[in-house]
Design a protein around this nucleic acid. Structure first.
Length: 303
DNA sequence: TTACGGTGTAAGCGGCATAG
DNA sequence: CTATGCCGCTTACACCGTAA
């Protein structure tokens, strides 16, 4: 790990890092829960094979806008350098906002993978690390510590260092999962997919119907017992207001007061019926929509 | 604290199959 | 032919998740 605090060292480091093709980056922010959060550290790893953090650069940029902007100019806005973050949206708020180019977000990648491929309760970095890499017992308590204090403790620097190592490892693992599961429609085996569908359909129906039933029973039970919250569920009422006016009244007002209301309305099948012959007397603008429907046939006898 | 796309939920609609 | 119900699509809205 290289913990850099000197302005010139950091600038040289940034220039060096700007020659990389891909960087795994994490940040630490002080006073995040106030109106003016301050960027404290930028941790950068350029070599994903580093598992112990020897090659991690920790740039101390606390209250140093010049250095932060230098980093943004040389790295964040550069379209030829891929920058990998976990929940990139958060870090980018401090590192170039909309100007940042070529950003990869491991949280977004993980979210795109279906649950059966990545069956995890949540997609926090800690969870991904513990399930996709060899690292265990990740300590995240330091995350909420005071990143505005100087000097930083050894624990804080250790945490900051390892976060970028974890990030790189998680990114590689997610990338593998993506590669294994990106389906090319022209190359799909329809027999295999159809067989898989048949194989799991019964099991799925059993579970799906039970889940639905359980939820219905819980909802009814909580209503009946006047309970709004349990350890597992919350029952909240929602209101939805639909405003309706009398059409004849509206038409009269529009005509009498010559209000400028000129827009198409959808004539549903029911209205078409109600209108009857009127439909032939006014101009109708028909919009045709087409879609594809998949129908299951030959439901095999499950016996 | 921030951002905002995703997800849960309910309602409205059209298409389709079935029954009479 | 009509009446009915199921299914999928769309719309609207509330709320969630993730970083420090």
């Amino acid at each position: 790990m290289f913990y850099l605090t000197d302005n010139n060292d950091i600038k040289k480091c940034i220039q060096q890092l700007a020659t990389a093709n891909i960087l795994w980056i994490d940040t630490e922010v002080a006073d995040y829960n106030t109106r003016k959060p301050r960027l404290s550290l930028i941790q950068v790893l350029a070599e994903s094979q580093d598992l112990i953090g020897d090659r991690v650069y920790i740039l101390d940029v606390l209250d140093n806008l010049d250095l932060t902007n230098f980093f943004i100019d040389k790295i964040m806005v550069e379209p030829n350098i891929e920058k990998v973050f976990h929940n990139a949206r958060f870090d980018i708020k401090f590192l170039g906002k909309n100007e940042a180019k070529n950003i990869t977000c491991t949280w977004e990648i993980a979210k795109k993978l279906p649950y059966y491929i990545l069956p995890l309760p949540n997609l926090k970095l800690k969870t991904l690390v513990e399930n996709l890499t060899g690292f265990k017992n990740i300590d995240k308590e330091i995350q909420g510590s005071d990143w505005g204090q100087r000097p930083l403790t050894e624990k804080q620097l250790e945490y900051a260092k390892m976060d970028s190592v974890y990030l790189a490892q998680v990114h590689l693992a997610l990338f593998e999962l993506m590669k294994q599961n990106n389906s090319e429609p022209t190359a799909e085996n329809l027999d295999e997919l159809g067989q898989r569908y048949q194989d799991i359909l019964h099991e799925w129906k059993l579970l799906d119907s039970e889940i639905t039933h359980i939820l219905e029973r819980i909802k009814l039970a909580m209503q009946a017992q006047n309970i709004s919250e349990t350890s597992n569920f919350k029952l909240s009422p929602t209101e939805r207001v639909t405003q309706k006016v009398n059409f004849a009244e509206l038409a009269a007002i529009v005509q009498n007061q010559e209000i400028d209301l000129d827009f198409p309305i959808t004539v549903t099948q029911k209205l078409q019926k109600d209108f009857g012959d009127i439909m032939n007397k006014i101009s109708v603008n028909k919009e045709k929509n087409s879609s594809w429907k998949l129908t299951v046939k030959n439901l095999s006898d499950i016996n």
